[in-house]
């Protein structure tokens, strides 16, 4: 179906926020049509053609340069989440403008260095044409269970910056998505940025998606993991997030808890993978059955954990100059083998 809509093209952020402001604030009747942001349009346009979406007014935010770009900041003037006062946070934060394209994630050095999982998600996202248009904010705002940036952002403890005329608030990604295509974003808010604390050097993250073909496939399921551990394999922090196995991308908390504070052995990883699979509440749909999703989510989690634990330990031992024990070495070769 082809559709008609009115298109607003704000040139500045404040102009955009004004256009989004509630009708009453703009002196319009309450019944006036709500304004919907459109960035890359890679969700909005198919949804319009499908008849699933019927907005009469779209507001194109893709010209707003302030929404684009990735930077690192050590001091956060806006204060920390949960009303904590601003200040230094370890290695600082990576801040991704909401209008940053997936293609940019793929080439940005900060992402490559600090957020391997996010980079890997960008690498298997759609196809080059879509990646050039699709934005991170659009991906999160669309809140599909299969949104590929969500699991990496979940394991990175990322937050979403929501800005309206009346101010700015931050919501953790986990709290941002509340149901299939439902978020806590208010109609007057734009996603202006996404930020996450720079993970410490002795951590590693990874992402893997199972699609029905290699490119241009929506995730049948996806997994992101992040592990911070020392050279002995003692885990300081573990994050596991799953996509396409529940109404929203989710964290597998029980699995994370199983790992945190423990020495990461293959058996423990196995147990965590099982817990992760148990956390999945998948459904049958045209891309895959619930049974398949639940089964494979465990396999992928285990694979990813094995790989990142290995990586994190290697970095740790480089940093702290400890040589791995023979047992560790054999573990490393083994996991390398299963990754082949």
């Amino acid at each position: 179906m082809q559709v008609e809509f009115e298109l607003l093209m704000p040139k500045t952020l404040s102009e955009a926020l004004t256009m989004l402001a509630p009708a009453a604030e703009r002196g319009l009747a309450d019944s006036s049509t709500p304004v919907m942001p459109i960035a890359g349009g890679t969700n909005v346009i198919p949804d319009l053609r499908d008849g699933r979406l019927r907005p009469a007014v779209l507001m194109d935010v893709s010209a707003l340069d302030v929404l684009r770009g990735i930077r690192r900041e050590n001091d956060l003037p806006g204060g920390l989440p949960g009303g904590l006062p601003g200040g230094r946070h370890g290695g600082g934060f990576i801040i991704i403008g909401g209008g940053t394209t997936i293609a940019t994630l793929l080439t940005d050095p900060l992402i490559a260095q600090h957020a391997a999982a996010l980079r890997q998600a960008a690498a298997v996202f759609a196809n080059p044409l879509v990646r050039n248009r699709a934005t991170v904010a659009g991906n999160l705002a669309d809140a599909s269970p299969a949104a590929d940036t969500a699991p990496p952002l979940l394991v990175l403890d990322a937050e979403v910056e929501l800005t309206s005329r009346s101010g700015t608030r931050w919501a953790p990604v986990e709290a941002f998505m509340v149901g299939v295509r439902k978020t806590v974003r208010r109609p007057a808010e734009l996603i202006t940025a996404i930020r996450f604390p720079v993970p410490p050097a002795n951590s590693a993250s990874a992402f893997h998606k199972v699609g029905l073909r290699k490119a241009d496939a929506i995730s049948v399921l996806s997994v992101a993991v992040l592990v911070e551990c020392d050279a002995d394999g003692l885990c300081h922090k573990a994050r596991i997030a799953l996509g396409s196995v529940a109404p929203t991308p989710i964290r597998a908390r029980a699995a994370e808890d199983r790992l945190q504070g423990q020495v990461l052995t293959p058996a423990l990883i196995e147990a965590a993978a099982r817990l992760a699979a148990e956390a999945a509440r998948p459904i049958d749909d045209l891309r895959g059955s619930a049974v398949y999703r639940q089964r494979v989510v465990g396999v992928v989690t285990r694979r990813l954990l094995t790989a990142v634990v290995d990586q994190a330990r290697k970095v740790s031992s480089q940093f702290f100059g400890e040589s791995p024990t023979p047992e560790e070495q054999s573990h490393a070769t083994q996991s390398h083998h299963t990754q082949s």
């Binding site: 196995e270 099982r274 699979a277 089964r295 465990g298 396999v299 285990r302 299963t338």
Partner: peptide, 9 residues
């Protein structure tokens, strides 16, 4: 691995 992760889930 196959049985472990898959089979007992």
């Amino acid at each position: 691995g196959l049985v472990g992760t898959g089979g007992e889930l």
